[in-house]
């Protein structure tokens, strides 16, 4: 389903807007409205994050959204239930750390598919770290979205490309998640380097927080991921988050049409 979505976007000459939300944030009830709202405002793919007690790849914004969601009782199973209630009509990616996924049992990904998920991304399961568990995920019902970092050498990019599906998530800069003031100058070069190593659609994330930044990245990549800025906006209000997505959508479409 992710492949179909990216193929459709490509046919239309558009770029994917990939939006991250933490399940259960700003509250379990508002979370459902948020997912539907951003789908309606132009999100093409929604990453739904399973909150985890020790999110080592995340900066303060997503950390605090995770802790708030956990305090409100959100769990792995709760995330699946949220997705099946929300059914936003765009592909959903289950975004999780490994430990809650392990604890959810061997049928976790089947249940995730039944809940409406199309893909899974495991933050702390890099390619080659655990061949057996990676094979089980690859052989499961969901696309397995893998990450490429600024530190990843070309030969490893190719390996990652072969072991992922759906799209590949290019981390645009060193560091944990979090909104930043600027887009790294070499993002275009990084995308080109990854494209020559891997055939999957490339979505760029980490630190993209404004419509202008999203537009800038959309000139280079197949998709733009917005995370912390959206979580921050959602913490203020669902309406504000929906407005941010609509503004990013418009800015990206304008930038691509002008190119």
């Amino acid at each position: 389903m992710l492949a179909e979505r990216f193929a459709a976007l490509r046919a239309e000459g558009r770029r994917a807007l990939v939006c991250y939300v933490t399940a259960g944030h700003p509250s379990p009830v508002q979370s459902e409205a948020l997912i539907r709202g951003i789908a309606g405002a132009g999100a093409d793919v929604i990453e739904v994050g399973v909150p985890f007690s020790d999110p080592v790849a995340d900066g303060p914004t997503i950390q605090s959204s995770s802790f708030a969601a956990l305090a409100a009782g959100m769990t792995f199973d709760g995330t699946l239930a949220l997705a099946s209630r929300a059914r936003p009509g765009v592909p959903l990616v289950l975004f999780t750390y490994l430990n809650p996924l392990l604890a959810a049992g061997s049928d976790a990904l089947d249940r995730a598919r039944d809940a409406g998920f199309s893909g899974v991304l495991v933050t702390d399961l890099p390619v080659g770290a655990d061949a057996e568990r990676e094979r089980r995920i690859s052989g499961g019902p969901l696309d397995f979205v893998r990450l490429v970092a600024p530190t990843t050498p070309d030969d490893r990019m190719a390996i990652i490309g072969r072991h992922g599906s759906g799209f590949v998530y290019l981390i645009s800069r060193l560091g944990v998640t979090g909104a930043r003031a600027d887009v790294p100058a070499d993002v275009g070069a990084a995308v080109r380097r990854l494209r020559s190593a891997c055939a999957l659609p490339v979505c760029v994330g980490f630190g993209i927080s404004t419509p202008a930044q999203a537009a800038e990245v959309a000139r280079h990549a197949d998709g733009v991921v917005v995370g912390s800025a959206l979580v921050q906006a959602a913490g203020r209000s669902v309406d504000e988050a929906v407005a941010l997505v609509a503004a990013m959508r418009a800015a990206m479409d304008r930038a691509v049409a002008a190119a």
């Binding site: 080592v56 790849a57 490994l98 933050t123 702390d124 399961l125 890099p126 390619v127 080659g128 770290a129 655990d130 893998r146 990450l147 490429v148 970092a149 600024p150 530190t151 990843t152 050498p153 490893r156 990652i160 981390i171 060193l174 560091g175």
Partner: peptide
Amino acid sequence: GGQYVPETLIPA
């Protein structure tokens, strides 16, 4: 054991 870390750290 293993190396369950964000991709960024693998080269390090």
